[in-house]
């Protein structure tokens, strides 16, 4: 029994296509991060090691970044096979990141503007959970250091974690920052998961939803409100920056679908849509 206790959980921290900012946030925690590392067996840390050698089995794998290249996808799938739990870290992995901007605009035009002579692959950007099963998400661009340490400790202690489901508005209002929505700016605070200490709002930068939706976000009412005051283009543009648009619209559809089902309208809508397509 004592022997078993001595076995530390094996950890891997890998980075796919990203700015590696989230891995730097981990390193920035200094002593606290090292203390946490002392309790685990760190097998893999792409940012600080020279030659990664894959172990056979990991208990927890942290994935940062977006699987953009084929090598990324291969590595991701490999890691999923070898790990018990897969935790995605940061906005790129969870929501698609800034790269997802090109999904919403013309993909071919974007690549021509960036790579003028080089020929590179130009895939659609998809979140990690499109490729493999994701167990937990640590959101943010970059992640919040205090939150990471807390959640990482929870993971070791009880094998799971839960982020309190409050919006950014909670963080913002309880710290007494000025409301930018009331100053006619598009701020996604009311539907975005809090826990970031409202750092953007502190410097009067509106929330662009890097942490994604929280459980209980009133997307429908909020969209109605935004579209009443701003054009659809403006609103979408803000939502696209951190790749949140597709998630928000998906939730919106779900909410509306749920409502329609209540009134038995879904069938009617489907038929309506079909008729529209035929036309």
């Amino acid at each position: 029994m004592t022997k078993r206790k001595n076995i530390k959980p094996k950890i891997a921290i890998i980075g796919l296509t990203s700015c590696e900012g989230c891995q730097f946030v981990m390193l920035d925690q200094g002593r606290r991060f090292l203390d946490w590392l002392a309790k685990v067996q760190l097998e893999e840390f792409r940012l600080v090691e020279d030659e990664p050698i894959l172990a056979e089995h990991y208990d927890i794998c942290f994935v940062e970044g977006n699987p953009v290249t084929k090598a990324n996808i291969k590595l991701l799938k490999e890691m999923r096979c070898r790990s018990d739990k897969l935790v995605v870290v940061g906005n790129c992995a969870a929501l698609g990141g800034v790269w997802e901007l090109k999904n919403y605009a013309s993909k071919t035009r974007a690549i021509k503007a960036v790579y003028k002579k080089l020929k590179v692959a130009n895939p659609d950007i998809k979140e990690v959970d499109n490729f493999v099963k994701v167990d937990y998400v640590i959101p943010g661009c970059p992640i919040d250091g205090d939150e990471f340490i807390e959640l990482a400790n929870q993971l070791l202690k009880k094998g799971s974690f839960r982020i309190p489901q409050n919006p950014v508005c909670y963080e913002c209002q309880s710290r007494g920052y000025q409301c930018l929505l009331q100053q006619e700016e598009i701020c996604l605070g009311p539907i975005t998961l809090g826990g970031c200490k409202a750092v953007c709002l502190k410097s009067k930068q509106a929330c662009w939803g890097c942490r994604g939706l929280f459980d209980g976000a009133q997307v429908e009412n909020f969209m109605n409100y935004l579209l009443k005051h701003f054009s659809r283009e403006q609103v979408y543009r803000i939502m696209e920056v951190f790749g949140a648009r597709d998630t928000i619209l998906k939730r919106l559809e779900e909410m509306q679908g749920k409502k329609n089902r209540k009134f038995g309208k879904s069938k009617v809508n489907k038929i309506d849509n079909k008729i529209k397509k035929l036309k």
Binding site: P167, C169, Q173, Q218, N221, Y225
Partner: peptide, 25 residues
Amino acid sequence: CIACGKCSINCPTCFCFDLEDSVDP
């Protein structure tokens, strides 16, 4: 209502609270 909860946070009589445990060793 967008359920942002700003009214309750800024209400002088709203006294409900949550308890949150952190497991930092």
